[in-house]
Amino acid sequence: MGMVDRISATEAAEHTQQGQAVVLDTRPQVVRHQGSLPGAVVVEPTELVDALAPTSPRRMACIAGLDTEIAVVSVRAQARRIAEQIAGLGYTNVRWVDGGYPAFWSALHAR
């Protein structure tokens, strides 16, 4: 697995709104009742490989290349592990959002 760093919710929101990053909402469906994240792409944790593997026929079109900035929002205990799993697929610019959904939601609405 690759090494990943955290990104602040404020920085992730700014990068997303400026079109510099793709936010992946990888919270399981049972947790997404908290609400959706505007502009985020929802990916079930169990479907990461199909959605992101460079050779997958189901790879998401919004991920332009392996150097695309990806900010992972997930359940706090899983965010880093999921970001590392994505980096392990060959992506070089993957970070997990510190504070998860609540922090990212607040950052989006503070602007």
Rank of each mutant, 00 (worst) to 15 (best):
M1R: 08
M1L: 14
M3A: 12
M3D: 13
D5S: 12
D5K: 11
D5N: 13
R6L: 03
R6A: 09
I7Q: 10
S8L: 13
A9E: 02
T10F: 06
A12V: 10
A12T: 12
A12D: 06
A12S: 15
A12L: 09
A13S: 15
E14I: 10
T16M: 14
T16V: 12
Q17T: 08
Q18L: 09
G19E: 10
G19C: 09
G19Q: 15
V22Y: 00
L24N: 02
R27A: 03
R27N: 10
P28R: 05
Q29L: 14
V30H: 11
V30I: 14
V30P: 08
V30F: 12
V31T: 14
V31F: 03
V31L: 12
R32T: 14
H33Q: 10
H33K: 01
H33D: 06
Q34I: 13
Q34E: 13
Q34A: 14
G35Y: 09
S36T: 08
L37M: 05
L37H: 05
L37I: 11
P38Q: 06
P38G: 06
G39T: 14
G39K: 05
G39D: 06
A40F: 04
V41Y: 04
V41D: 03
V42T: 11
V42W: 14
V43H: 01
E44M: 12
P45I: 06
P45S: 03
T46I: 02
L48E: 14
V49A: 06
D50W: 04
D50R: 01
L52R: 00
P54F: 06
P54I: 10
P57S: 09
P57R: 07
P57V: 02
P57G: 08
P57D: 08
R58K: 10
R59K: 12
A61Q: 06
C62L: 15
C62T: 15
C62F: 04
C62H: 10
A64P: 01
A64F: 01
A64N: 07
G65V: 04
L66R: 02
L66A: 03
L66G: 01
D67F: 00
D67W: 00
D67E: 04
E69W: 15
I70R: 00
I70V: 03
A71C: 09
V72F: 13
V72Y: 00
V73I: 15
S74H: 05
R76M: 07
R76Q: 05
A77M: 12
A79R: 08
R80M: 11
R80E: 15
R81E: 13
I82M: 00
A83Q: 04
E84W: 12
E84I: 08
Q85F: 11
G90P: 03
G90T: 02
Y91M: 14
Y91A: 10
T92H: 09
T92D: 02
T92Y: 03
R95N: 12
W96E: 11
V97H: 06
D98W: 14
G100N: 04
G100A: 01
G100F: 02
Y101C: 03
Y101H: 05
P102R: 11
A103W: 15
A103E: 15
F104D: 03
W105P: 02
L108K: 12
L108G: 14
L108I: 09
H109L: 11
H109K: 08
H109N: 14
R111W: 13
